[in-house]
Each structure stands twice: as C-alpha cells, then as structure tokens.
C-alpha cells in the first residue's frame, strides 16, 4: 500500500486513556466544516457532523471512527458507486457527489460510524482520515493519546 506519508498505519483506539473530552469530535467537525475555522464553524455553520464518535458509559469511554475494513461492508452495500475503497491506500471514502443518501451503508456498517448528513443534499458522512492533513485531526489533537496512529 502507498499513501501520502508512504507508510502503512492504523488508528489504535485506547479506551483506557480516553477521558471523553470530545476534543476529537470538535476538531473533526471543524476540519470538515466549510470555513475550517473553529469559531466561524460553530457560530455560523449549522449541522456540523463529527465523523468520529465518542461513546461514554460511566468512567468508560472511547472514540471510534471508520475502521477502513479490508472487506468493507459499506462499499459492498453502496448502490451508487459513491463508497469506494482505494486499492492503493486502503482508505474508504464516500464521494458525496455520487452519494444519493439511500443509507445502505449505514445499515451495513457494524461499527455504526457512518452518519446521515441531511443539511443540504442527503449524503452519507464518514471519516476520510483527513485527506488534506498530514495526520488525522482527531489523532493529532487528542490530549491523552487515546487515539494513536502507529506504523504496523
């Protein structure tokens, strides 16, 4: 596999280090907002969607996002050809121009990490590993390394 950093990596979820601060969600929302500016995004843009989800029960918590499965059920279920797994990088991306919002992917994903975005045209919204950034912003901004990007 070949990617922008030329390395094969994996996001590790480290439940024992997550304090449910939800900074990953905040940075994800900003990264995927129109303005990409935190104040503008939260004050002026509506329906910001985080593609990483913090789950919390009592003192236990973790953040989970798309696992970019090798046999991705969302890709298999997609009727429009929008959900594609890049054969070189392994990254699963939803082409929002092609997506029709049928939600077959939401029905298929066993992690429940694809969201319904209905703010404009209905599209499935999911983790793209921050294609424009060097590192995914959820990993970069986690204060406690509860999300870690490691070489494998």
């Amino acid at each position: 596999m070949q990617g922008r950093l030329g390395k094969v990596k994996k996001i590790f979820i480290r439940e024992e280090f997550c304090i449910a601060c939800r900074l990953c969600e905040i940075y994800c929302q900003v990264e995927h907002s129109k303005s990409k500016k935190i104040l503008k995004a939260f004050k002026e843009e509506k329906d910001l969607i985080s593609r990483v989800l913090v789950e919390e029960v009592g003192f236990n918590s973790f953040a989970i996002q798309c696992r970019h499965c090798s046999e991705a059920l969302c890709v298999e279920a997609c009727i429009s050809g929008a959900m594609i797994k890049n054969k070189n990088t392994g990254i699963v991306i939803c082409d929002e121009n092609k997506c029709v919002g049928c939600w077959m992917c939401i029905m298929a994903c066993p992690y429940g990490v694809i969201k319904r975005n209905i703010s404009e045209k209905k599209v499935a919204s999911k983790c793209d590993l921050c294609g424009d950034e060097e590192y995914p912003v959820c990993v970069k901004n986690c204060p406690n390394e509860a999300l870690q990007l490691r070489d494998i």
Binding site: M1, C69, G90
Partner: peptide, 10 residues
C-alpha cells in the same frame, strides 16, 4: 473484535 481495525496507508 470491533475496535481493532484494519491498517491504511498514510
């Protein structure tokens, strides 16, 4: 089983 995921190339 769920939280361990696949690797990707970055």
């Amino acid at each position: 089983h769920l939280v361990t995921g696949d690797a990707v190339a970055l």
